[in-house]
């Protein structure tokens, strides 16, 4: 009996210390969304139960190994205890109730994070290998996700190719983005700040770099940003290269093609126009209007040397006029 009392006290002590320690080191990032609060509430409950169960198993094992260790000269076996049915029933029934409670709480918190605000603004999210783009209710497209604080938004997400996953750790919620269907991501930011959305579902070669800034700002700052974006879009729409740049951002071209000379999955666009390009078949071609147009319309017609084994560029649904705009934009990137 004495042993059980000591072990009981030790279990409570170790459980409490473990829990205090885990809380002290801040396991989770900051809570930046209304949805993160119920998630963290359930998480903290999980951590309390985990701390307790860890102590409940480890402490008696360690205690027994130390206190009941074989004494010098003792060669007998230990006491013959085969089992104890009431005890086995106890440690079946109690955990059963605990997990049912947790399942109930899990369903309850799931309900809380899915509360719908019917006035939530809709932003369209397009994911492709390996870029995010965001289309705002006002019609313009950006590579950044800007959100006003304390307002629910719903992201209508769709993929142009493979499965991606939208995850902002500070928001806690994650949702896959699929080709051929629209998935919802409903979020209410509560903390002004700069975050990142990072693709959480392996989506191919450059998966690690598929990220985009998420900016949560006050309503006033948000409105100002929207106005500036609309103005930029209006100016850009005047010229072919401006429309081309908008299109390159919206279509995710820059997930594979940089404009600063660094190499990703596809060749860089910097200094491309007018240069001599070595192809995989050994020939060389001048990157003129015709070559770039062909490379956009039929991506695999000519393969640049050094890019034979990377993932082939998919065909994009673009009109001839749009391709012209893109070529005009690429021509400006000296």
């Amino acid at each position: 009996m004495r042993h059980f009392v000591i072990v009981g006290v030790l279990v409570i002590l170790v459980a409490a210390l473990t829990n205090v320690g885990l809380n002290y080191i801040h396991l989770m990032p900051v809570e930046a969304s209304a949805q993160s609060i119920p998630v963290d509430w359930l998480w903290n409950l999980d951590i309390e139960v985990i701390s307790f169960l860890l102590a409940l198993i480890i402490v008696p094992i360690a205690y027994s190994l130390v206190v009941f260790r074989r004494k010098k000269g003792d060669t007998t076996d230990a006491e013959h205890i085969e089992g104890n049915t009431p005890l086995e029933i106890t440690w079946t029934i109690i955990p059963l109730f605990v997990v049912l409670i947790f399942a109930y709480l899990g369903a309850y918190t799931l309900g809380e994070i899915r509360v719908v605000d019917p006035s939530a603004a809709e932003i369209k999210v397009k994911a492709i290998q390996w870029a995010w783009s965001f289309q705002y209710p006002e019609g313009f497209i950006s590579k950044e996700l800007h959100l006003p604080v304390n307002k629910q938004v719903v992201l209508k997400m769709e993929s142009g190719d493979v499965i991606h996953s939208f995850w902002v750790p500070e928001f806690r919620i994650k949702q896959d983005v699929l080709p051929g269907r629209v998935t919802d991501y409903r979020i209410t930011p509560i903390l002004v700040g700069n975050y990142m959305v990072r693709c959480a579902e392996l989506c191919g070669t450059s998966h690690a770099y598929m990220e985009a800034p998420v900016v949560v700002s006050s309503q006033a700052d948000y409105d100002a940003w929207v106005a500036s974006q609309e103005a930029i879009a209006a100016v850009a729409a005047q010229t072919p290269e401006g429309r081309g740049e908008q299109l390159a951002n919206a279509s995710g071209c820059r997930g594979c093609h940089t404009i600063d000379g660094s190499k990703l999955v596809g060749p860089t666009w910097q200094g491309l126009f007018g240069s001599q390009v070595s192809l995989s078949d050994g020939t060389t071609v001048t990157a003129d209007d015709a070559y770039i147009t062909e490379s956009i319309a039929k991506p695999s017609a000519k393969i640049v040397k050094g890019f034979e084994t990377t993932t082939a560029m998919p065909k994009f649904d673009l009109t001839d006029a749009q391709i012209k705009d893109l070529v005009a934009y690429i021509a400006t990137l000296k």
């Binding site: 998630v39 359930l42 997990v99 369903a107 918190t109 799931l110 994070i113 806690r172 994650k174 949702q175």
Partner: peptide, 13 residues
């Protein structure tokens, strides 16, 4: 278990 409850798994997945 934190992976089993949906709400927390949305972060952990």
């Amino acid at each position: 278990p934190p992976n089993a409850t949906v709400a927390t798994d949305l972060h952990l997945q």
